[in-house]
Amino acid sequence: MKSLQLLYETRSNNKREFGTTSFDQLVETVITPEVLQILSGRGYEKILIQIGKGDFQPVQDDTHVEQIIEYYRYKESIESDIREASLVISHAGAGSVLETLRARKPLIVVINENLMGNHQMELAYQLFQDGHLYYCKCGTLKETLASMDEGQLIPFCGGEPAKFAQFINRVMGVM
């Protein structure tokens, strides 16, 4: 079953930096009928939402909705959820971005306008420029979902700690 994971942030601490209003807005955007329709057209049958401290709780009252929508506030580890997801939408927090790319899952980063000028944005934007993820605003999420091609994303290989170890060996005079 193809499922979508919507992430607030992977870690429950460090929350003061993130406003919740903009995330509520993102959740609302994702569960609008238009977006759900695009998602169902793309075969997403399940949507799992981490709502964090957000006030907005998605209620499944619309019987026309074909997808299963589930939500939770926090989990100790969302690694397994990411591994099971076919697509992840997140809010540009460095933790969730890296964790998703490491799991080799397609990722759409929806810019958190509250984080404008925050360094957390730097990484997501750079990885977007390098072609590892999609990057959009709440308002353009619909278009991004409709036009994206997950196959076009370049896998993120991560770094090489071995290079660091070699360099340190040399300067510390270790053979």
């Binding site: 993120f156 991560g158 770094g159 090489e160 290079k163 360099f167 340190i168 300067v171």
Partner: peptide, 26 residues
């Protein structure tokens, strides 16, 4: 710091004393 690593070329351009060996972690 005796050795100061940065992981992106943009920072290396601004901080010339830094060491840049590409990404070191993931």
């Amino acid at each position: 710091a005796d050795y100061f690593f940065v992981q992106w070329p943009q920072l290396k351009a601004r901080y010339t004393r830094a060491t840049y060996l590409g990404l070191l972690v993931n």
